[in-house]
Amino acid sequence: MKTLERLRRHPRLVDLLWTLPLFAYALVFMPTSLGPAAAGLPPDPFLLAMVFGLLTPLIWRRRWPRGVFAVIGLVSFAQWLAGVDPHVANVSVLVALYTVASRSTLRWALAAAAVSVFGFALPAFDGGQSFKSALNAMATVTVFVVAILIFGIYLRTRRAYLQSLEERALQAEQERDTQVRMAMAAERARIARELHDVIAHNVSVMVVQADGAAYAIDTDVERARNALETISTTGRLALGEMRRLLGVLRESDDTGSYTPQPGVGQLGELVEQVREAGLPLEFTVEGEQKELPQGLQLSVFRIVQEALTNTLKHAGPGASASVRLRYEDGGVEIHVRDDGHGTAEAENDGKGHGLAGMRERAALYGGTVRARPVPGGGFEVAVRLPAGEAVR
């Protein structure tokens, strides 16, 4: 197999190797065309030059197929003009014809075939034989020429077909690599969005609890202790979720991709966490609860989490909030509202994705987000998500 690969890389050497036996065969039988040579005389110089002129160009037949055919054709014509009978070396005409048919266009292949038939017709009808014999000889030669022509065209077509298959395979491989890179970029963007939501929410809870602990540490030790415990629990949860998300980025460890994502079922835990952070919160679910796609459940959870994070950051002391989740035939609605005084800044506080992240998640499912200050104080976020697959 390695030897064949080396030979394919050196086509001229291959042509030389298989042309050498033709040289030897032609030289051995060359004396039969000249009577004096059969008696031990040296071969005729013209006939020797003719053999080399017919066979030597075959070494370059793959590189210049039409040029080689032209040279061999001219040598053969000179042979006919000199009155030399057809020789073993004239098989080079058929080899050159095959090369043109397999490596040039159909027009050149037909032209070479016509020239070959005409070249073989010259000695056939000029050899003193009967017209019928010459016609039979020409019919036989024509069959050979047509067969070689068809075989060469077939190989050229097959070579072009195989080349197109290789190009398509290469293109498909490149497109696959591009799709993989795009999927990796989208996954990293998703992980960045998830990390923002996780860090923003949990750090906000920890900051609120730390402020409460600092305020109550001298007057209410038990309350300060509870706040510190909440900070510790929240920090552990945040670290665990961050490890899960970052684990997806590790090429050698893809276990993170199999860890369940938070969904609607974890909203109760989120509400309790916010309540423990000191924000009075009312949570209600309306309508007949339906089984939602996992990706949509994750978007619901993150939207509620982001809205409550903004409330913790901007609503101020003494504020309360409410979360209403409503199931409909066409999807699910989320309504988060608070009665604070600073949440208007949540639209673009310059510190994170904020409502832009909510809109990205909603747009992924063809949903809508409405976020605005409430007259008289407070802020509300209303989101509607169709219960369908993500819009790609």
Results as ranks from 00 to 15, higher is better:
V274I: 12
D211P: 00
A172M: 04
R250A: 13
M184E: 14
R275M: 06
G247P: 07
T259M: 10
A183I: 03
D253A: 05
A183D: 10
V285G: 02
L296Y: 09
Y258F: 12
S257T: 14
A238G: 05
L245Y: 06
A186G: 00
I191H: 05
V271G: 08
P293D: 12
H201P: 02
V208E: 07
A216I: 00
E166N: 08
R243K: 11
M242E: 14
G212E: 13
V198E: 15
D177Y: 08
E194G: 05
V285K: 03
E291A: 13
D253L: 08
A224R: 03
A227M: 13
Y215K: 15
K290L: 11
I199R: 04
D220E: 15
H196F: 12
G247N: 15
Q171D: 14
I191E: 07
V248P: 01
R188V: 06
L267K: 00
E291Q: 12
V271I: 15
D253N: 15
G265Y: 02
A210E: 04
A214Q: 12
R188K: 10
A210M: 14
Q179M: 11
P293M: 05
L237I: 05
E276S: 11
E173W: 03
V271L: 06
Q294F: 01
Q179C: 06
E251M: 12
G247T: 10
L170H: 09
R193W: 03
E229A: 09
D211W: 05
R250K: 11
I231M: 15
E269F: 06
Q294L: 08
L170P: 02
A216N: 12
L267Q: 01
M206G: 08
L228Y: 08
R168W: 03
A192P: 02
D220N: 15
A224P: 06
R236T: 15
L228E: 01
N226K: 09
R168Y: 00
E282C: 06
D254P: 13
E229D: 13
H196S: 13
E187H: 07
Y215Q: 15
A224V: 05
Q273N: 10
H196A: 11
L292K: 07
L270E: 02
Q294T: 14
